[in-house]
Amino acid sequence: MNTEAVAKRLVELCRKGEFEQAQRELFAPDAVSIEMPGAPAGAMGNAKGLEAIYEKGRQFNAMVETMHGGTVSDPLVAGNWFSVSMSMDVTFKGRSREQMSEICVYHVHDGKVVSEQFFYDMG
């Protein structure tokens, strides 16, 4: 699968809310997931390897009280890299409803995502 095909499939699955399925299908076993440096306490940290990435997603989901909606942009592809913009309208447990947005950058090698990195404003 080339980078554009990986990007389109990831967007398709993420728009359905099937994030773990996207990871199972499209990520390399030793992929890394990188958060913003200095992310606030309680934020998900970096993860290396699929099992750690799945667990990171499960921990995030455990913090969510209600997911009200979200969007995933079309991918922007450049060589072995692509990016998408994602937004979420979410209420976390014990907190008020929040609008979140981020740029997600993915690196593809041999048809699999080998890294994802998230860029967002920290409140």
Rank of each mutant, 00 (worst) to 15 (best):
N2H: 14
L10I: 00
V11R: 06
E12Y: 12
C14G: 11
G17Y: 08
Q21G: 02
A22F: 07
A22I: 04
Q23I: 10
Q23K: 15
R24L: 12
R24P: 05
E25D: 15
E25P: 15
L26T: 00
A28G: 00
A31G: 11
A31R: 07
V32Q: 12
S33E: 12
A43P: 01
M44R: 01
M44V: 14
A47E: 01
K48N: 13
K48I: 01
A52Y: 08
I53K: 12
I53E: 04
Y54G: 03
Q59G: 10
Q59A: 11
Q59P: 07
F60R: 03
F60H: 06
N61E: 15
E65F: 05
E65R: 00
E65K: 06
T66I: 09
M67R: 12
G69M: 03
G70V: 12
G70L: 03
S73M: 05
P75N: 10
L76G: 02
L76F: 07
G79W: 00
S83F: 04
S83D: 07
S85L: 07
S85D: 12
M86N: 04
M86P: 02
S87N: 08
V90R: 07
T91P: 02
T91V: 02
G94M: 04
G94T: 04
G94A: 11
S96M: 08
M100W: 15
S101D: 05
Y106P: 00
H109P: 01
D110R: 10
G111T: 12
K112D: 07
V113P: 00
V114M: 06
V114E: 06
S115C: 09
S115Q: 03
F118N: 02
F119P: 07
D121P: 01
G123I: 15
